[in-house]
Computed example of a mutant assay.
Amino acid sequence: MSDIPMHESGNVRKAWGRITAWLERNDPEAFAALGGPGSETAIGEAELLMGLELPGEMRQWLLTNDLDAGRQPDGRSCLVALGCETVLPSGHLLLGLTDIQRVHLSRMGLEEMQPSADPEYPFWRREWVPIAAERDGLYGTFLDTLSGTVGTWAEAHGPEEGVYASLFAFLQETADQLEGASSGDWRGPGKTAGPRNLDPRPEDEPVRLWARANGYLVNDRGRIPGTIREAYEASRR
């Protein structure tokens, strides 16, 4: 079990309770899709698969409501197969345990196949656990299991760490926005206000030029998707 104090877990339950109460009053369909309680067994299996330990506050949240409890994605699903819609004002889907594992393993696999140019600032770390994302997994929000802070990632630029001081802060701000009020600044201390933009690597420019000339969509910055890089290499053979 994590060493995070249990009073932090209590805060998470209270913040999550505000969100579920709002949904029950204003969006019964989303409330009905929140899923049932999670299980210690499922959480333990997920930890083994991802190679990390979830903090106590995240365990308490998942044990209260695992959005994916009793559900399995089909073979044609997007990366985020079961995410709960209409909960987050950002438009991202809140993730249950199944989608958390799917997105984490996908991001970790990308980092291992295409390591970041600067190892001090990787695009993904094993200790980061996604908690919200878009269907394709290219944008989302993660919990740093070591520091307890919450950050964001986007395909076009590097991740931004410490956007929220904790999972409690993230859920509290979400509840504030749903209720139409803001009760404070929930950002983590001493963090930058904006995302860390990464300059494009010179060796990637030929790949970007080829991709655009051949009808692929590719960003000016950030990681070039593996499928595009593979197609580029194949065209040169």
Rank of each mutant, 00 (worst) to 15 (best):
I4P: 01
R237N: 12
L198Y: 11
K14D: 10
Y121K: 15
E161R: 10
E112I: 08
Y121Q: 15
E230A: 14
R126I: 03
N219Q: 12
D204H: 05
D74A: 09
G226C: 07
P115T: 06
C84D: 00
H7Q: 12
G222L: 08
P206L: 09
L79Q: 02
D118Y: 04
G158T: 04
E120P: 02
S9C: 10
S147W: 04
R107I: 01
T192E: 14
R59D: 00
A154T: 11
V103C: 03
A42Q: 11
R76I: 04
P130G: 02
A46D: 06
L79H: 04
E155F: 08
P89D: 11
Y164V: 00
V80P: 00
Y216L: 06
F123R: 12
T174C: 07
Q177T: 13
S106K: 07
P195D: 03
L105D: 05
P200D: 05
E112D: 09
A33P: 04
L105S: 09
E134L: 09
G215R: 07
H104C: 12
P5C: 03
G17Q: 06
E203L: 04
N214F: 14
V218R: 04
Q172I: 01
E160F: 00
A181E: 15
F31A: 15
Q72P: 03
A81V: 06
L110I: 07
G35H: 03
Q177A: 14
D185W: 03
L138P: 00
L82T: 00
E160Y: 00
G10C: 07
A42V: 04
A21F: 09
G17V: 07
C78P: 11
V163A: 02
G51M: 08
D3N: 14
A32D: 15
S106Y: 14
F123N: 10
D220R: 13
P195S: 13
M6F: 13
D176Y: 01
A175H: 02
P202D: 02
L79D: 12
S235Y: 09
H92Y: 13
E205Q: 12
Y232D: 02
K191M: 15
G148V: 01
I43A: 07
F123E: 14
A156W: 15
I131K: 01
G215L: 07
E127M: 11
L217V: 10
K191W: 10
R229Q: 12
R59E: 04
L171E: 05
S90K: 05
N26D: 14
